[in-house]
């Protein structure tokens, strides 16, 4: 295994993005909106494509605006279909994001003559390429650091409101907290985080990091602040572990298993998502064992 400066930057970017996603993810989890991350990351595709078509460049701003609008559109329209059309939550979300994703695939194919935008790139990201930068610290690191800082600041400022709106939206409303606006704000932040992360790490890492660290942290703590802290730790660990697996253990094992001995490193974003899953399932098994054999410990930590 050869560790270069680029590897360091890949891990740093991955970890910053993962932690940035984990913060809104915890509240999505508490609101029972876990699939919203998946939905938004599919639905922003037409927004990206229209942003490109309108501006004709790969300028990040029109893309960002288009994608955030598409994300908001998903939240609002699926809400309308759910209430006015009386379609169950999951199904109305599914109808909207599938349609938008299909539209996005077609728009991208139409736009392919003007701009190079590959749906694959949106899905898998190109973390390995994004960190190659002439500046001493790659732009992508600043970018994911900024979004992490923004999410942490918002979570700190609106902590009480977010918590109340998640656990008791009616009481929140009665005590003057606009829980509807809090939910919309959460959707916007999720969309923004998704879009910023897209360019660097691809949507799959975003979907994973929105939910898996939070879910793991829920096994470890019963307080929202505790869950938030643990989810940051899990996100950080998955990024480090994921990249290690991607460049060394993964290719070796996969090569041994399948007989392809000359494999290079695997997709870091994919491995980061997978290792977050590994961490989650390890803690799930551990929590079952604790429940079974050490019930006294369980009362304190789980």
């Amino acid at each position: 295994m050869i560790w270069t400066e680029l590897d360091t930057w890949i891990v740093v970017t991955g970890a910053l993005t993962a932690m940035a996603c984990a913060v809104p993810g915890v509240f999505l989890l508490l609101n029972k909106q876990s699939m919203l991350g998946d939905a938004i990351s599919h639905a922003v595709l037409p927004g990206l494509a229209i942003g490109f078509l309108v501006s004709g460049t790969r300028d990040p701003l029109p893309m960002l605006i288009g994608a955030v609008l598409a994300g908001l559109f998903t939240g609002v329209v699926s809400g309308v279909i759910e209430r006015r059309g009386r379609v169950e939550t999951g199904a109305s979300l599914g109808v909207v994001f599938c349609s938008l994703f299909a539209l996005g695939l077609i728009l991208i194919r139409i736009a392919a003559d003007h701009v190079d935008l590959d749906p694959g790139c949106v899905l898998y990201g190109a973390l390995e390429l994004a960190v190659i930068d002439s500046a001493p610290v790659p732009r992508i690191v600043w970018q994911s650091g900024a979004i992490l800082f923004l999410n942490l600041a918002l979570a700190a400022v609106f902590f009480k409101e977010l918590q109340l709106a998640a656990f008791d939206p009616r009481f929140a409303k009665a005590s003057g907290i606009p829980s509807g606006w809090i939910h919309q704000g959460l959707t916007i932040v999720t969309a923004l985080t998704t879009v910023v992360a897209f360019e660097s790490v691809g949507s799959i890492l975003v979907i994973a990091m929105l939910i898996v660290p939070g879910a793991t942290a829920m096994l470890l703590s019963r307080r929202v602040a505790g869950v938030l802290l643990w989810s940051l730790v899990v996100a950080l660990c998955s990024a480090v572990l994921g990249h290690l697996l991607a460049i060394s253990v993964g290719p070796a094992w996969l090569g041994w298993l399948t007989g392809h001995n000359d494999l290079g490193s695997l997709s870091s974003a994919g491995m980061m998502a997978a290792s977050a899953g590994g961490i989650f399932f390890t803690f799930l098994a551990a929590s079952r064992l604790v429940q079974r054999f050490l019930p006294s410990l369980q009362k304190r930590t789980l």
């Binding site: 979907i207 939910i211 898996v212 998502a273 977050a276």
Partner: peptide
């Protein structure tokens, strides 16, 4: 996300 991530890594 976890399964798809593993799939992407193998892809």
């Amino acid at each position: 996300s976890v399964f798809f991530g593993a799939g992407i890594a193998m892809l």
